[in-house]
Design a protein around this nucleic acid. Structure first.
Lengths: 331, 331
DNA sequence: CGGTGATATTGTAACGTTGCAAATGCCGCA
DNA sequence: TGCGGCATTTGCAACGTTACAATATCACCG
C-alpha cells in the first residue's frame, strides 16, 4: 500500500480493470463518461502520476526534446535564451528539454548520432547549421523529427527557423550610408555557417545598390578570438579609411569598439559602428551605437512549436520560420 | 531480426543466458573473464546499446540530473556557463541534464516538487538560494540528492557550492580605498538571496576596517530594471558625493556605467567603478574598469562533482565548495 | 568415492504501462 | 424468445532490463 500509486492501485480502488483505468486517463477511446469521471476522481485523490519510464518503455516515446548547441556560439546569452523560448513552447505539454553534450569541436554528427543511438529524445533542435550540413540528410533518412536553427543549401525539405541575416546586412549598410559613411567593413561571421553567407550576400548587394565601398577581411574571421578583432579592425580603419563597421554579434562589437577606443578613434564621429544585438543589456553600452535586434528567445519558441508539429506527424513542407530584424537606431 | 539488438539478441548470439549477458556488460559481479570478453565482443559487434527506458523502469534510476534555474538570473551567461560546467563534470558518465521548467516567478518549490513527483531525475542542482530556502529541508526530508548554488542560514547539512561574495566585497572596497576613494556605494544585489547578505557583510566590514564611508541604497535594489539603476546610481553620485561604486554583476555595471556616462561623469577620474565579472566579453568594456571574476562554469563543474558523490551515497557532510574571487585590476 | 564449498551461470519474476483481441452486457428487433 | 450489433470493459502479453534465488559445474579434501 505504500509507494507511489500505479494504475493497479487505482484499478483496485475503483473496481475497474487496469486497462480501463489506463484508457480513461489517456483521454480518448471508447470509455463511458461516468467511468472516466470516477477513475479521474480516484486518480486525483490518490495523487496518481503516470510513470514516465514505463510509458517510455511501452510506447517508445520519451517526452523529451534534445537541444544540441555548441558552447562556442559567439552570442553570449544564446543558450539561455534559446532554452527559455523552447520551454515557453513546451509549457502545457509534457515535453522536457535535455541538453545533449557537445563540446563544439568534434564532428557535429556525434551528438546527433548519440541521441538516436540511445533513443534519448523524440525530436532534436540544433544550431550552427552549415550549407552542406550532414545532419539534415542523416535525420531525414532516419525519419527523425528535428528543426534546425539556420538553413542549408541542400534541396532536402526540413523544418527550420532562421534569422534574416540578409536583411540585417542590408539594413545595416543602408543605415551607415544614410549617415554619410562610404567605406564599409563587415566583420566576418563564422565562415562555415550558412547564415554567414546570407549576411555577406546582403552586405554586398546593399553596398552595390548604394554605391558605397564594402569589404570583408578574412583575417578577422576568428570571432572567437576577440583580441584579434580588437587589433585587426582598428588597424583596418586606419589603413584603409574605413568609416563604417558592421558587427555580426555583441562579442565582435565589444571587441571592435574596444580596439577603436584604445586607439583613440571616436565612435559616432570618426566612424560608425552598427551591431547585431541579442541581449537587453547590450543596449546599455556607451557610447550608444545603432543596433539591429535578433530575438533568440523568439527563435527558440518558434522552433519548439515547429518541432511539436513535426513530432505530431506533420510533413516538413512549409514548417519554416524566417524571423525579421528589428532596428534599434539612435535618433 | 530487425530492430535494435537487445540483451536477448546477444544472449541468442552468444549462447549465454540473458541474465549472464546483463551482468557481463554491467561490469561487476561474478562473471568469468572469458565470458565477459566474449559477451562484450558480440555486444560491440551487434552495436548493442542498453535501453534507458527499460533500465530506468527496472532500477528506478533515471541517469538524469535536473537543473533548476530562474530565467531572471541577473547574470547574462549564467545558464550557458552553468550547463557547460555541469556537462564537463558529467562527461564520461551516463548522466544527462534536463532543464526543469521554471518561470522564476512562482514558488521555488514548484519545480522541485514537480521533479520528485514525476521522478524526472536522480539529483537536482538549483540556484537562487535564500537564507530560509524551503527546498533544502524538503529535499533533505525526501532523502533526495541535491546541490544548491548558494548557502542558507539553516542548520541543515547539505551539499552546496557558493562564490565567496564576502571576499568579493572586501576586495572591492580595499581596492577602491587604495585608489583614494572615500565614499563608497554598493549596488544592492537581489535582497532575498543569501549571497546578498554575504556581500553586504563583507562590504560593511571592509568599510569599517578601512575607515571609508559606505552605503547601500535600497531603492536601487531592482537589478532587473536596469533603467532604475541607470538613473538612481548617477543621482546618488551627484547628491552624496559618492566616488566609488561596486556592482554585483555585469548588468548592474552596464547600467551604472551608462547612467554615469550619460551625465558626463568621468569613469576612473571622477569616480571608480568596480564590478563582478562573469563573462570574458565584459573585459572588453571601455573605459576599462577593475573587475573581480566569478567563474560560473567552474561552479557548475564543482556542483556536478558534488552531486555525483551525493548520488553515489556519500553523506552531505563536507560536500561543499566555496569558490574564491579572482581579481582583474588595471595596473 | 561422497561431501563441501567456491565459482559461474541460469530461470523466473517483476518494474508500470499500453496494444490487441476477446469478452461482456445490453438494447432493440425479428 | 433468440439473436445480431453496438458500446464498453477486460485479460493477456509484451516492451528490455535487473534482482533474487536457485542451479550447475568443478576442484578439493576427508
Amino acid at each position: 500500500m505504500s509507494g507511489k500509486p500505479t494504475l493497479r492501485t487505482i484499478s483496485a480502488a475503483s473496481g475497474f480493470a487496469v486497462t480501463t483505468v489506463s484508457r480513461a486517463l489517456s483521454g480518448d477511446e471508447k470509455i463511458a463518461e461516468s467511468t472516466r469521471r470516477e477513475v479521474s476522481r480516484i486518480a486525483e485523490l490518490l495523487g496518481y502520476v503516470p510513470d514516465r519510464a514505463a510509458q517510455r518503455l511501452r510506447t517508445g516515446r520519451t517526452n523529451v526534446i534534445a537541444l544540441v548547441l555548441s558552447p562556442h556560439e559567439e552570442i553570449i546569452g544564446f543558450r539561455g535564451s534559446m532554452i527559455a523560448g523552447l520551454q515557453q513552447a513546451f509549457s502545457g505539454t509534457s515535453y522536457h528539454i535535455v541538453m545533449a553534450p557537445y563540446d563544439g569541436d568534434a564532428d557535429p554528427m556525434v551528438p546527433v548520432q548519440h541521441i538516436l543511438r540511445h533513443g534519448l529524445a523524440d525530436g532534436i533542435v540544433f544550431s550552427g547549421t552549415r550549407p552542406d550540413d550532414p545532419r539534415i540528410s542523416f535525420l531525414n533518412d532516419a525519419g527523425f523529427p528535428f528543426v534546425s536553427h539556420g538553413r542549408t543549401d541542400s534541396p532536402q525539405v526540413h523544418a527550420w527557423c532562421d534569422y534574416d541575416n540578409d536583411s540585417f546586412a542590408r539594413l545595416a549598410v543602408t543605415r551607415l550610408v544614410a549617415r554619410g559613411r562610404k567605406s564599409l567593413l563587415l566583420i566576418p561571421p563564422q565562415p562555415d555557417r550558412t547564415y554567414a553567407r546570407h549576411m555577406r550576400e546582403g552586405f554586398f548587394a546593399a553596398v552595390a545598390a548604394t554605391g558605397a565601398e564594402g569589404r570583408i577581411d578574412g583575417a578577422l574571421t576568428l570571432a572567437t578570438k576577440p583580441a584579434l578583432l580588437q587589433e585587426g579592425a582598428a588597424g583596418l580603419v586606419e589603413r584603409h579609411g574605413i568609416d563604417g563597421l558592421i558587427c555580426p554579434g555583441e562579442v565582435s562589437a565589444m571587441a571592435v569598439l574596444a580596439g577603436l577606443h584604445d586607439r583613440g578613434v571616436r565612435i559616432g564621429t570618426d566612424v560608425d559602428v552598427i551591431a547585431k544585438q541579442t541581449s537587453e543589456t547590450f543596449g546599455l553600452y556607451r557610447p550608444r551605437i545603432d543596433t539591429i535586434y535578433e530575438d533568440i528567445r523568439a527563435a527558440g519558441e518558434a522552433m519548439g512549436h515547429l518541432l511539436l508539429r513535426r513530432i505530431a506527424g506533420e510533413p516538413p513542407e512549409g514548417l519554416t520560420a524566417l524571423l525579421a530584424p528589428t532596428v534599434n537606431f539612435r535618433q
